[in-house]
């Protein structure tokens, strides 16, 4: 069963002046436990699609349904709350909070959800262990390598046990070794816990590891292959 249902989505920027059609009629279903890469050349609409799937942006036309909830029916406040509880985000530039330790970064989302302190700490430590950073829980982002920071970001994204994790170019700033380690780690989480991952990427190494590859060209799905 699909947890993300995208139906005939279009997205046009700058409609009143010089319209830019970022997405042109996208239909896409993503099922639970998938490990999907959205690929394509720059400007093909990967990030726009990810933003819409993540409830950060609204389509010009079409609808998006997450676990049976149509995002069009939600108020802005409900969408923010939806993101907090149902979606994990991993960003290209890691975007950790520099004044917090790795553990504090991971549990921040849980604290926002109002979870008990002890539960937050236990979950945070467990997640950092699972991404191989059990010995770095009290390190600040500036004390970690890029790869380690992105692992913390993944742990943060997983903290709230989201329905799916969206990762926008997660390996773009990483070297080969870090990329490989990160992909191994995410792959393992996908296999063992069944976490659903959706990536946007240019990186062929990511594409090779994806179970499903959706290729966008000029805002349209050119191909959708499972490997």
């Amino acid at each position: 069963m699909a947890i993300i249902e995208v139906k005939n989505i279009t997205k046009t920027y700058n409609e009143k002046q010089v319209p830019v059609h970022a997405l042109n009629g996208i239909d896409l279903d993503i099922g639970a436990g998938e490990f999907t890469a959205i690929v394509g050349p720059s400007g093909c609409g990967k990030t726009t699609l990810l933003n819409i799937i993540g409830g950060l942006d609204k389509p010009t036309e079409g609808s998006i349904t997450i676990n049976g909830s149509n995002l069009d029916d939600l108020t802005e406040k409900q969408i923010i709350d939806f993101r907090l509880h149902h979606i994990g985000f991993v960003f290209q530039a890691y975007n950790l909070i520099p004044v917090l330790t790795a553990l504090e970064n991971v549990i921040f989302i849980l604290q926002m959800q109002g979870r008990p302190h002890n539960e937050c700490i236990a979950t945070g430590k467990e997640l950092l262990e699972s991404v191989g950073l059990g010995d770095k829980i009290n390190k600040r982002p500036s004390e970690l390598s890029g790869g380690q920071q992105q692992r913390v970001a993944v742990a943060r994204a997983l903290a709230s046990k989201p329905d799916y994790v969206l990762a926008d170019e997660p390996t773009a700033n990483l070297d080969s070794k870090s990329t490989s380690d990160l992909l191994d780690m995410m792959h393992q989480l996908n296999e063992s816990v069944g976490t659903t991952f959706v990536f946007s990427t240019h990186d062929q190494r990511v594409v090779e590891r994806a179970k499903r590859v959706v290729t966008l060209v000029d805002g349209k799905i050119e191909s959708d292959t499972k490997q």
Binding site: R83, F89, F91, I97, M112
Partner: peptide
């Protein structure tokens, strides 16, 4: 701005 954008993205509401 980038950090605030991240906080908003992950679901930290405006009141917070």
């Amino acid at each position: 701005q980038q950090e605030l954008g991240m906080l908003m993205s992950v679901g930290v509401n405006k009141v917070r």
